[in-house]
Amino acid sequence: MCLAVPGKVTSIDGNQADVDFGGVVRKVNVSLVEATVGEWVVVHAGFAIEKMDEEEAKETLELWNDLLDQEEEL
């Protein structure tokens, strides 16, 4: 139920947007977010519930990598 899948917004028309899920494009309601074309959103039950922050995504990866490096030093 709370499963939500990330996809990239390819076009917007009012509340409806085309979102590309790795090649499969679906209509998604974007009224809950302020999304623009090219941004990543996470979609649940036909609605984008939040935007995915690319900078933060990178930071998460860095966090994981940092942890790896730290442990490597031990």
Binding site: M1, C2, A4, N29, L32, H44, A45, G46, F47, I49
Partner: peptide, 29 residues
């Protein structure tokens, strides 16, 4: 799949009742 599907289907039936379940991920939809 979505509450919007239920709204759309309303034109085909006499009374449409959408059973809304789910936590705060779903209630905003």
């Amino acid at each position: 799949y979505s509450v919007e599907d239920a709204v759309r289907l309303s034109s085909e039936v006499k009374h449409m009742v959408f059973m809304g379940i789910g936590f705060e991920t779903t209630s905003p939809t």
